[in-house]
Simulated scan of single mutants.
Amino acid sequence: MRRARVVVAHRAPDRPPIRVARGQRVTLGDRDRDWPQFVWTTLAEGHGGWVPAALFDGDHGPATALNDYDTRELDAEADEIVTLQYELADWWWASNARGDEGWIPTRALDLIDEDGP
């Protein structure tokens, strides 16, 4: 697996993460201004979060999820080393030394060469 050094501390937003399941019906709102590949997604029970728009069969309004997705983000300090699992929409699903997992933006990371130290 790849590793990366965190170059800019990252903090998860102050709202609970949501999980979207493949086949789940949701309501899509506006695109994020900083991350236009993400759309505000509201679940039937009213909770919402940012999810990559490519994971839905529509662009706005009612839509169906094409894959599972968890909006959980990883809190990370500058200079921390994280293990990267996979990338989606310029974010990496990563884990830290404590075993915490979540998304962290690529722009907050310096990827470490797989053959490096």
Rank of each mutant, 00 (worst) to 15 (best):
T27Y: 05
F56P: 05
I18R: 04
V51E: 07
T27V: 15
T71A: 05
R98F: 14
P52L: 00
V39G: 12
D79Q: 11
P17W: 09
Y69C: 09
Q37C: 00
D57T: 07
H60A: 11
A44Q: 02
G102I: 00
A54I: 08
D34K: 15
E87S: 07
A53T: 02
W103V: 01
G99A: 07
Q85W: 11
D115M: 06
L111D: 04
R11I: 05
H47M: 05
L74M: 15
W50I: 03
E114A: 12
E45M: 13
G29E: 14
W50F: 11
T71K: 04
V26F: 03
T41Q: 00
R2T: 00
A97E: 15
H60F: 10
R11K: 13
L28H: 04
A21K: 09
H10L: 10
D100S: 09
Y86H: 14
A12I: 00
R25N: 09
A4I: 03
D32E: 05
R31V: 10
E87F: 10
R19W: 13
P17F: 12
L111N: 02
L109Y: 06
G48K: 08
P36G: 05
E114P: 03
D14W: 04
W103F: 02
N67W: 13
G99Y: 00
H60N: 04
A9N: 03
W35P: 01
G23Y: 15
A89N: 13
I112R: 15
L55Y: 14
W91G: 04
A89G: 05
V8F: 05
W91R: 01
W93M: 09
A89Q: 06
T41Y: 01
A78R: 06
A12R: 09
G23N: 04
E77Q: 03
Q85G: 01
G116Y: 13
I104T: 01
S95D: 07
D90A: 01
L74V: 07
P16Y: 12
P52A: 11
